[in-house]
Each structure stands twice: as structure tokens, then as C-alpha cells.
């Protein structure tokens, strides 16, 4: 009878411990919803545009914002979320078939200009332009644009090839995140 008592008591202890562990480990942190950038603001060019998400279409090609919404730019959703480290890529049309589009004046952006990106979690990330590059499509610097650190704004430029129906060049703006400091008047 004593043995049975012991067994029961030991079992009770074991069960208690197991229950406590289950409660403790079950209380995991819930996954926060994925953060996405929602808008871009370029004061020097008076551009304030919403950002949609762009995926990959077929063979190594990034989806483009629709021409029906020429004032909208897009964030490539496989690139870094602005503010999280890594390279964040934003693409916008320079024009449609008939009129200027969101990034029409991107070529006027100069080094030092401020760019702000708003995020779905309420944060705003500030950047300063490092450089602006014009490059022929055949020499698009994929590694430089999709790798490294900072914001990249991509549009088209140069001569328009009527036969192909596309621009011959890309215009790329590289910007580095600025650490949050006291406000500086521009």
C-alpha cells in the first residue's frame, strides 16, 4: 500500500511539472503582421505617392505598377522593408503613353535630397540621396540595386525606342538611411 502511495504522489509531481511546462511554453509571442511600406514622400520634387506591392512576374522580371494608376509607385516585395536593413527597391513609371507619371522628375533629384518612406506600422524612415545613375538597360546593375544597403528608386529614361516601345535606359537613385536625430531645417 505504501508503494502505491509513493507512486501516486510521484506521478502527481510529474504531472504538475508537465502542466506548468506546457503553460509556460505555450505562451509564445504572437507573430506580428508583416510590415510593408505604404507611401513615399520626396519634398524636393513635390512627390507624394502611395506604394503598392510588386511581385515577380515570370522569368526574373519585376511586376510594374499599372499604367492606369500613373501616380502610384511600387515596392518590390522581395526586397527589404524600408527601415529593416538591406536594399529596398521602389519602382515607378517616368510616364505613360500620353502623360508624365509619378517618377517623371526623378532625374532632377540631387545628392543630399531627403526621401521619406511611411510604413504600415506607423514608422517613417528617412533617407538622403547618395547618387543618381543613368544606365543602359542591357547593363542594369542588378546586384547593386537589389543588394547592399539603402533605398533604390528605379524608373526609365534616356531615348525612347519606338520600335520596341520602351525606354533605352534606367534611371536609378541610391539613398542611404539617416539615423533619427534632431530635426534639421532644410
Amino acid at each position: 500500500m505504501a508503494k502505491r502511495e509513493w507512486t501516486r504522489i510521484a506521478a502527481a509531481g510529474l504531472v504538475t511539472a508537465a502542466v506548468l511546462y506546457a503553460i509556460g511554453s505555450g505562451r509564445g509571442e504572437p507573430e506580428p503582421p508583416a510590415v510593408t511600406p505604404t507611401a513615399i514622400d520626396i519634398p524636393a520634387l513635390e512627390i507624394k505617392a502611395p506604394l503598392i506591392r510588386l511581385g515577380l512576374v515570370g522569368d526574373g522580371e519585376v511586376e510594374l505598377p499599372p499604367y492606369s494608376k500613373p501616380k502610384v509607385a511600387g515596392w518590390f516585395e522581395l526586397s527589404a522593408v524600408p527601415g529593416d536593413g538591406g536594399a529596398s527597391v521602389v519602382i515607378g513609371h517616368v510616364d505613360t503613353k500620353t502623360a508624365p507619371a509619378v517618377f517623371y522628375r526623378l532625374k532632377d533629384l540631387r545628392k543630399g535630397a531627403v526621401i521619406r518612406v511611411s510604413r504600415s506600422d506607423g514608422k517613417t524612415v528617412a533617407y538622403r540621396v547618395d547618387s543618381v545613375e543613368r544606365v543602359h538597360k542591357d547593363r542594369f546593375p542588378a546586384k547593386k540595386v537589389y543588394g547592399g544597403e539603402g533605398l533604390r528608386l528605379v524608373t526609365c529614361g534616356g531615348a525612347f525606342d519606338q520600335a520596341k516601345g520602351e525606354y533605352e535606359e534606367n534611371l536609378i537613385v541610391y539613398a542611404a538611411a539617416t539615423a533619427p536625430r534632431k530635426r534639421t531645417t532644410l
Binding site: 510594374l64 505613360t96 525612347f160
Partner: peptide
């Protein structure tokens, strides 16, 4: 997350290009 896109984005319809 994926493989780097290799193709240059065609981000323009040509409506404002010189000569058009």
C-alpha cells in the same frame, strides 16, 4: 526570399519622350 530579378524594369510608356 527569392532570386534577384535580372531584367531591367520597363518603367515608362514613352508619352513624354523627346521626338514623340
Amino acid at each position: 526570399l527569392g532570386t534577384v530579378p535580372t531584367k531591367a524594369p520597363k518603367a515608362g510608356g514613352g508619352g513624354t519622350a523627346a521626338g514623340v
